[in-house]
């Protein structure tokens, strides 16, 4: 499991929105979510390839630095044939 953590953005941050759903496959570097600070939108990238296992943040949640907003199951789950 790899946690998706919000870095220190230098300003109070809140969660914006998800771009992927739980169960979606992601690749490292894919844009998975948006975090808001006053005057800017920061795209959060997937830290690893795999399947988004859990989304733990919702729109408007305050996000202190280091907050985990979701987890990625590192093993890519192939869709059924």
């Amino acid at each position: 499991m790899t946690r998706i953590e919000v870095p220190d953005l230098g300003a109070p941050a809140t969660f914006g929105q998800w771009h992927v759903r739980a169960g979606d496959r992601v690749r490292a570097g894919d844009r998975v979510a948006e975090v808001l600070i006053a005057g800017a939108v920061i795209d959060v990238s997937a830290p690893a390839s795999g399947t988004l296992a859990e989304r733990t943040a919702r729109a408007g949640d305050p996000l202190p630095p280091g907050t985990t907003i979701g987890t990625i199951e590192d093993r890519l789950v192939e869709p059924p044939a």
């Binding site: 220190d8 953005l9 300003a11 005057g39 800017a40």
Partner: peptide, 29 residues
Amino acid sequence: LSPGRYVRELVSLSVELAREFAVDAVPDF
């Protein structure tokens, strides 16, 4: 730079610009 610092720099910069035109400007963070 952090994103927060970057935004603050742009705000300060716009105030500095306005003061060059003798405008009484204040930042809004």
